[in-house]
Design a protein around this nucleic acid. Structure first.
Lengths: 258, 258
DNA sequence: AAAATAGTGTCTATGAGACACTATAGT
DNA sequence: ACTATAGTGTCTCATAGACACTATTTT
């Protein structure tokens, strides 16, 4: 970017770089706050779920919000997102990706807060433990649009009650669903939402939940197996009331595009 | 996000929202600067080109950088990007989209600057006028990777000389190319880089330049015409030394995905 | 006429969808 | 035996690539 530096003295011509930097005053302008918000997404019972925390202070007191936090002055954005995951959800390892940056001037009534949104894919079991606390909830995402149209989503409690959400987090989650739908066909996202071993039907149901539409079974099997990312374990499902399916594992293999 | 508000008094229990907001002190923490950087991209002579400005002050004095500017306290990110386009390139209308947010702690040696990167697609003629000034340049993007692998790109002057670039702008442009390659197949990007009327071969060359590989002519024609986004004008090319091609125009029509 | 590209028609290879069929568990 | 799902084989249809051919302009 082109600087409009405002050094402490107005006679900054002819300085070398070291002198310039020493005189540079970062506080000459008022700055916005910068936060990260992380959508911890999982799939359960053919529904997209996301971890929300109930706010215990103003603004939006009592409303449900994505876990987040301000970005430290010496912390990268990715580190800040990882810290939020660690501190708010005790999660060390997960698929995490930057989503979009939200910066409407009035999105936070306190002051100007620019939020860099991330999303993370987590196996249901891990999130379910967290959501036991009364201030936590694993909300169901209700997507009121088809395909990759985009737009805000609605949130429901486990009992199907609509949840009051804070800030612009319905828009954030809308963009998260949009991204998931766009990437699930070619990137190994589905595996992140399942235990290490899973059946092909498990994986298909995850894809169907993300996409919001049913998929052709035969075609899904062929494509998925042809991708070379799955390894058969030889282990079968147990006690399922029908012919048991084989368990597969994800093989990272040659790095796929992104 | 979950707030860690630090009101001016420590006894903030039991306040209503209005009182809380009145007492909220946004300056309790040190804040990073937030900037937008805009990659003004076009295609000319089968090469991707981008507008760069030569920096006249430290840091990176003399190096080439994307046009950018700090985000005002009452300005949305999109507005800031539009303002940069207007002030730095005199461009009012263009396809503009947020790209990614870069926030490595040391990406700017002055102070912590978080940069929300945008890219814009502009017809070559418009950019060429700007690049006449000695402090401006329409650099060629050299992409050292295939497909959507990603990574930083290199920049060359019109004479093929490598250009010294400022900050992390090679990475920013790498992400821009990645985004372009991912979207050009299904979103109407190519039209943005051409005059109102163009031939199918013109459009194919733009797609080939973005993708960095050649495309099948027959298939490209079929797909493009079948998309229903092109309208034949009945006007033919003039004085081309071979059978003249018909000019087409882009028809916005029903809003495509994104 | 030669050169160069526009534009059309058709064949083939590939992949998705559809459907039928067999296999194997629990009840 | 019945039910439910796993897994395989095959047919069809749509689309991309390849190639041949005709059309139309300038030189």
């Amino acid at each position: 970017m082109t600087i409009k530096a405002k050094p402490k003295t107005s006679t900054n011509e002819g300085l070398n770089e070291a002198d310039f930097l020493a005189r540079y005053d970062a506080n000459a302008f008022e700055h916005p706050s910068v936060a990260v918000d992380v959508a911890l997404v999982t799939v359960h019972e053919d529904q997209l779920r996301v971890l929300l925390l109930q706010r215990d202070s103003h603004p939006y007191k009592g409303a449900w919000a994505l876990p987040g936090g301000f970005v430290g002055m010496k912390e990268s954005l990715d580190s800040a997102a990882a810290r939020v995951l660690r501190e708010k959800a005790r999660i060390q390892k997960a698929f995490v990706e930057q989503l979009y940056t939200f910066g409407a001037p009035a999105r936070d009534p306190r002051t100007r807060v620019i939020s860099v949104a991330y999303y993370a894919l987590v196996e249901y079991q891990k999130l379910q433990q967290l959501a036991q606390k009364p201030s936590h909830c694993l909300a169901t995402l209700v997507v009121p649009w088809q395909g990759e149209a985009g737009g805000p989503v609605k949130l429901q409690s486990a009992l199907g009650q609509p949840l009051r959400t804070a800030f612009d987090h319905q828009e954030v989650l809308g963009v998260a669903v949009q991204r998931l739908r766009a990437k699930v066909d070619y990137a190994p996202l589905g595996f992140q939402l399942l235990p290490k071993a899973f059946t092909l039907l498990d994986l298909q149901r995850v894809h169907e939940t993300i996409l919001g539409r049913s998929l052709n079974k035969d075609s899904f099997r062929r494509r998925t197996l042809a991708s070379g990312r799955l390894r058969a374990t030889g282990v079968m499902e147990q006690a399922v009331g029908h012919r048991p399916a084989e368990h597969y594992q994800y093989v990272p293999g040659i790095t796929p595009a992104q």
